[in-house]
Design a protein around this nucleic acid. Structure first.
Length: 376
RNA sequence: GGGGAAGUCGCAUAGUGGCAAUUGCAACAGACUGUAAAUCUGUCCUCUUCGGAGUUCAGUGGUUCGAGUCCACUCUUCCCCA
């Protein structure tokens, strides 16, 4: 994997670049749609390619391990072969499930034991095992196994958790170095900075992660309950330390405004369930604010969903029709909302990139930011 | 014409003497950040300074400390027989 910076803004924070993988190039900054179970929910491949132009999507180690399982994935030639996805893939390690499925797991030095949310069976995720699973899934970018600690963790816990994540990283890297890709394309491993909302911990973690000289580096454990301003501060603290010549991936973030602020602070890669989940729940993101398509006010609005969108459905279906579909619980409504939001997110990062290259990113960001958070 | 059953907050339901009154749907809003989410939460008779206050269970009258609940009559709907 290679990373090339094409342009930096005048202050040297926001940058436009290209991540090159064996499955193709990824222009950065980029948003990566989340496809936890091997599918970006409600969106099929042709739409991801053509309407949304997703450059890379995510899969999840924990979910794919439980279902369909390693035997099927390996027989299919990895997730690329299984899902018919020919562009780059990134897999999260299950570190987020340590957080989101906290009631069904137990953390030890050795690893994390999960009780399956599907059938109650128990599975031990050690750093080594997580590397092996991600080799089988075959993502272009693998993530280190970490503990995503809650935003409200106290200092003591945050420190202990961060140190565990660092020890797990060493074991991940060791196993990664001892194993080979299975399908003929190369794989990279990204370590993850932790440290919650504590600047000194974040600094220590960033230094540790930077010392590993990985192909790219991730910032985890943000947008998990801490104030947004704190998140921005932590990004600044961390990015001052992470190497500039490697892509920086802010995990699980976020709102359109979060993404623009993080780009300005030097982040290159993003993923978030927000466009897909909120889409399925009837919330549309647009360049002029958010729309709750369930609201009565859209009942008779026959304007196209978004005449400027790259997605065909946005240009041809009306808001009133989409309102009807969502109200009637028609599956097509979920599809259109998901496609729309992803097309918008990809438009947002594409446009951000253009403005970085044009040299007016900050001005553009300031002009669009108040629009993005409006409620239409 | 005779016999029987039933009327509860948009619809459907619960309720057999202490009730502003169950539940579902609908409606109206809100939430959602490395997906246990096509999910969840709130409001849903009227007014409210969110503490409450005022009017309700087809209608009228009655019994009772107290009635959606018991009694009488009226109205309406449905079923069966002629």
């Amino acid at each position: 994997m290679k990373f090339e910076i094409i342009k930096e803004d005048s202050r040297g924070y926001a940058r436009a670049g290209v991540v090159s993988t064996d499955h193709g190039d990824i222009p950065t900054p980029i948003f990566m749609p989340v496809g936890t179970a091997g599918t970006v929910k409600a969106v099929h491949r042709r739409e991801l390619y053509q309407d949304i132009d997703a450059k890379i999507i995510l899969g999840n180690t924990y979910h794919l391990f439980l279902r369909p399982g390693l035997y099927i994935l390996q027989a299919a030639g990895g997730l690329h072969g299984f899902a018919g996805w020919e562009r780059p893939l990134l897999t999260d390690s299950g570190g987020f499930q340590v957080f989101s499925l906290a009631e069904n797991r137990k953390i030890k030095e050795e690893g994390c034991t999960f009780q399956s949310h599907i059938d109650g069976s128990r599975h031990v995720f050690t750093p080594e095992r997580v590397m092996d699973i991600q080799r089988v899934i075959g993502a272009d970018i693998m993530m280190a196994f970490d503990e995503c600690a809650p935003g409200e963790s106290d200092y003591r816990y945050a420190k202990k958790s961060m140190e565990l994540t660092h020890r797990w990283l060493d074991r991940c890297m060791k196993r990664f170095g001892e194993t080979q890709p299975l399908y003929g394309h190369s794989q990279s491993l990204f370590p993850i900075v932790q440290g919650c909302k504590y600047a000194d911990l974040r600094r220590r973690s960033a230094e540790y992660i930077a010392s590993k000289n990985a192909d790219g580096n991730a910032i985890g454990g943000l947008a998990v309950g801490e104030p947004t301003e704190t998140m921005y501060e932590m990004i600044e603290v961390v990015n001052a330390i992470l190497p500039k010549d490697k892509p920086r991936y802010l995990m699980g973030v976020g709102t359109p405004a979060n993404i623009l602020e993080a780009i300005e602070r030097g982040v290159d890669m993003f993923d978030c369930v927000m466009p897909t989940r909120n889409g399925r729940n009837g919330l549309l993101f647009t360049a002029h604010g958010t729309i709750n398509i369930k609201n009565k006010k859209w009942e008779t609005c026959f304007d196209p969903i978004d005449p400027e969108s790259s997605a065909e459905c946005d240009r041809t279906y009306s808001l009133a029709y989409l309102h009807h579909l969502i109200r009637a619980e028609e599956i097509l409504g979920l599809q259109i909302c998901s496609i729309h939001n992803l097309a918008f997110y990809l438009w947002l990062v594409r446009t951000a990139r253009q403005h970085i290259i044009a040299g007016d990113y900050t001005a553009w960001k300031s002009s669009i930011l108040p629009e993005l958070s409006r409620r239409i």
